[in-house]
Design a protein around this nucleic acid. Structure first.
Lengths: 157, 157
DNA sequence: TTTTCATTTCGGAATCATTCCAGTTTGGTA
DNA sequence: TACCAAACTGGAATGATTCCGAAATGAAAA
């Protein structure tokens, strides 16, 4: 599964009977363009607003819910307050920096075999979430003053 | 790291300068006795109340926060509303059933080498969270009527 | 044992992400 | 172009978690 494009996402929505509205277009655009930031609902709203006149927070949540339900995006939940979302559906691990809060996608397939889990625990695995917490490169090499607490930065390892 | 006991937990609190109060004892007891249920703050409070006169929800949160900060318990965050906690600090994977919401501990060390991640992504791993979602044995073998939606059940595979 | 005080507890209010709702707007088909 | 189910909106409701000032209390010291 390769990096999803704006057109693919919109296409899927269309073919599944969703109406294509300016709000949905804006939100999809934000997800495609800023997905690597693992943005939260508020950031998504702000960015969407730059792309079309009006987008309410309710709509953002509704749309994220639909996309998530359609398996087109995934939501992450963290210790912190706000949920955050990701468009990257390739198998990867989220590396969450405990200092700056940056989330880095680390592209390696998780090597625990779902098949084994199924057999041994009688559990059918359909979905996984793997997160490693620790300190990212910036936070271990930059001077302390350089990272201003839990903020969204960019990135993809 | 073996299954933690009531005495170990209390001992650690004591040696780290925490006062031993009836509330903390009750909460620790609940965690030790009902930890396998991966209980949430409310359940912990209810159970704690059975063990000592008064325990406020504020106290439960405060205590869970302290234990968590001391690395004695871990909090899990899920799609749902309430956070849930676990005392099991052995390396394991949480198998989360999408039907009944049961969380099963699956004892297998995660096999992605933190060392490799550190080297390749410049990320120092200190902690991990691994969850597989899917359907548990009960939910694939019992008649549908048998599982009354997202509830806490028992268990440990 | 009593005193003392920093720590803990309490409960009610505040916060904040998310959801709900009722009324209005609108994409897309006929 | 008209129509209507689906979407959108903003404000109110929800619910977990945090905050806070005041009262209670472990446990060290006297």
């Amino acid at each position: 599964m390769k990096k999803i494009t704006r057109e693919e996402l919109i296409g899927k929505l269309k073919e599944r009977g969703f109406k294509i509205t300016p709000q949905r277009l804006a939100i999809v655009d934000v997800l495609v363009e800023k997905g690597h930031l693992h943005p939260g609902a508020n950031l998504i709203r702000e960015e969407a607003r730059k792309r079309t006149e009006r987008v309410s927070l309710s709509t953002v949540y509704a749309t994220l819910g639909e996309l998530s339900q359609q398996g087109l995006i995934k939501n992450l939940e963290f210790d912190q307050l706000e949920n955050r979302y990701e468009v990257n559906l390739e198998e990867h691990i989220n590396l969450v920096c405990k200092l700056c809060g940056k989330i880095i996608d680390y592209h390696i397939p998780p090597s625990i075999e779902p098949k084994n889990i199924a057999r041994e625990a009688g559990f059918i695995v359909t979905d996984a979430r793997i997160e490693y917490y620790g300190y990212c490169r910036d936070c271990t090499t930059l001077p302390k003053s350089a990272h201003a607490g839990r903020q969204i930065r960019e990135e993809d390892a």
